[in-house]
């Protein structure tokens, strides 16, 4: 196994607000890592760190053996909040095509027939082919989310970063996306933030619990004490309906 993402004693500050504290983490190739934690726990910050969108205040980060931001084209990223210009005159097709752009041939760049083929295939796979010519501004939240997942997948990245990728999706689309992810995971490392314990318990290979510091990183098996520590609050909501694999020492009455 080789390590694709390596963090060593990483701190991240926004101004004087600390978002991540002393994070040390190794992620192996072909892992499917789920990241959980409370709101404001630094999950999105961790993904942005790997994507090269925020810089660590101290500590070291390596992505595919290089500093973050130096392996472009190999990192696919689906953000939690869409900081994009929704009024821009772009169709769904044009939006997904931008995933094929690489920094190496920007001069007089034209998208090739091959690019279009790849985009068409991914749109079919994600059931958004019908939306092809729709303008971005005309999409619903869930449609938009699937378009952005398609844009990340069409890059054929080595590492896929997903920040609550299915938060706006209906049950069908959700399970459809997870079956696709499972397929892709055969040769792609996936790092995914989710608040959905059901999803985490049934799809990920390993789990990280983050609340500024890393409380747990390992097999997706958890106990109430740890969850209580991570969330710093009653975990009833979280534990409710969670299969036994996540809570191996599940008692009759989950108390907190």
């Amino acid at each position: 196994m080789n390590t694709v993402v390596q963090l060593e004693n990483v701190d991240v500050y926004y101004g004087n607000m600390q978002a991540l504290c002393n994070i040390t983490l190794n992620i192996e190739a072909r892992d499917f890592l789920g990241i959980i934690g409370p709101n404001g726990g630094g999950k999105s910050t961790l993904l942005k760190l790997i994507a090269g969108l925020v810089t660590p205040s101290s500590g070291k980060v390596w992505v595919l053996g290089r500093p973050p931001g130096h392996a472009p084209g190999k990192i696919g990223y689906v953000p939690q909040r869409f900081n994009l210009n929704r009024e821009f005159p772009f169709s769904v097709l044009e939006t997904i095509l931008t995933g094929r752009l690489t920094k190496n041939n920007l001069f007089l760049h034209r998208y090739t027939a091959q690019d279009e083929l790849a985009v068409n295939e991914i749109m079919r796979r994600l059931d958004i082919y019908d939306l092809k010519d729709r303008q971005i501004i005309q999409l619903s939240g869930g449609q938009m989310q699937r378009v952005l997942i398609a844009r990340a997948l069409v890059m054929e990245p080595e590492i896929l970063l997903l920040d609550e990728p299915t938060a706006c999706l209906d049950a069908n689309s959700k399970s459809h996306i997870y079956s696709i992810l499972k397929d892709l995971n055969q040769d792609m490392t996936i790092i995914m933030v989710s608040h959905d314990m059901g999803v985490i318990s049934s799809h990920v290979k390993s789990l990280a619990c983050l609340n500024m510091t890393m409380f747990y990183h390992g097999l997706p098996e958890l106990n109430d004490t740890l969850l209580g520590q991570v969330y710093g609050c009653p975990v009833e909501l979280i534990a409710h309906g969670v299969p036994h694999r996540v809570l191996p020492h599940h008692q009759e009455e989950v108390h907190v």
Partner: peptide, 10 residues
């Protein structure tokens, strides 16, 4: 269209 994504793809 999307400055953040532009940065991610380099």
């Amino acid at each position: 269209f999307d400055e953040e994504f532009a940065q991610v793809i380099g």
